[in-house]
Design a protein around this nucleic acid. Structure first.
Lengths: 190, 190
DNA sequence: AAAATAACGAACACGTTGTTCTTTATAAAA
DNA sequence: TTTTATAAAGAACAACGTGTTCGTTATTTT
């Protein structure tokens, strides 16, 4: 990719992130974004069709990375017992968030964090499905499988969201424990 | 309240609801709302400062009613054992939703249902706090109390959301059972 | 019947959007 | 290095949405 393209793309992402940490998504204008990013109007529209596409691409870049590496860990650790393997994946996700790559925390704690949490949950559903699909854990429950997957993903997102809103005082290990305490009884509830 | 005021207010709410069922909140303009509601531009702004205030007031009217009556039931049934009382409240809520007062289902199943689910969850947190605050059920858990309240409220909202997205094939009793199965193990997990 | 209040409609200034065109700067290919 | 391709800049534009003002008409309330 052209060095110029990469630079403007990153300048726009950065400006958008900064603005999101200050004000509501709906009140952010393209004009403000290009002012903060210091790029021409034409340039912005050459990169992103609209503000909404910008949001979409930002989310994709953010979560592709974090979920992708977690997926990797699920394969590597596949040799251990089923439950432990998934526990490790969850812990890795929480630790990854704590590291704050790409200022992801700035976005997950802003006014409009629901925009990002929605995306995050969506990607998590896929991760969780592949995590549990091989072993039949979810199939043996008296609750529908897609209900369970949705419940687990939601609980993870809510746990992380709760953690961030409490200024992440707890360690990643504690948070993972909270999360597992919230869902594990369900998995054993056959 | 003046009959004229009430009529325009309802016309605007109705128009807004219709539009929300068709398109994204961000793409709905005040112009469209007043066209569909068939009221003058000046009249709209005499009632609502902005589109956002319209959304806010709509949410308040919607959930004030449904949560309010549920709160009532929690007091009435207080004589039974603690857990059963709350179970009845949850069932009532689900049944209330099924009745579809004020086209609440149209809003909870539209593209932007997250706007309403967010409000719903907020009100639920208050309901749940009062539901469990007298008996010390939540205090005896190894998990923080506000984490638990948040988890229960989220799980309820997610359960309802899952139900609606599946065209509400299940009965209110089944859905309440699913919800209770998802949270009850936690409450006993001291 | 009179006074108060709500709705209407037209017009307005202002800001935002997304596009077009020309010019300049930078990177890649020869 | 020179040439060629491509990205960014900047100015200008029409179209649209916003929120307000003002004078007029219709409907309640007193």
């Amino acid at each position: 990719m052209d060095r110029r393209q990469k630079k403007t793309r990153e300048a726009i992402f950065k400006a958008f992130t900064v603005l999101l940490s200050k004000k509501n998504y709906n009140h952010i204008t393209v004009q403000e974004i290009i002012d903060v990013a210091d790029v021409g109007r034409t340039t912005f529209y050459a990169h992103f069709e609209t503000k909404e596409f910008l949001l979409k691409e930002l989310c994709e870049e953010l979560f592709e990375h974090i979920i992708g590496t977690a997926m990797g860990h699920s394969d590597i650790k596949g040799r251990y017992s089923c439950e432990k393997a998934s526990d490790v994946v969850y812990l890795h996700l929480v630790q990854h968030l704590q590291q704050n790559d790409n200022n992801i925390l700035e976005l997950l704690s802003c006014q409009n964090n629901d925009l990002f949490l929605k995306y995050f949950k969506n990607d998590l559903v896929n991760l969780i499905r592949t995590l549990y699909e091989k072993n039949g854990i979810l199939k043996n429950s008296k609750l529908p499988e897609d209900f369970l997957i949705n419940h687990i993903a939601s609980t993870f997102v809510e746990t992380v969201s709760w953690w961030i809103s409490h200024n992440m005082k707890e360690t990643p290990e504690t948070i993972t424990d909270y999360f597992l305490a919230a869902i594990e009884p369900i998995l054993q509830n056959k």
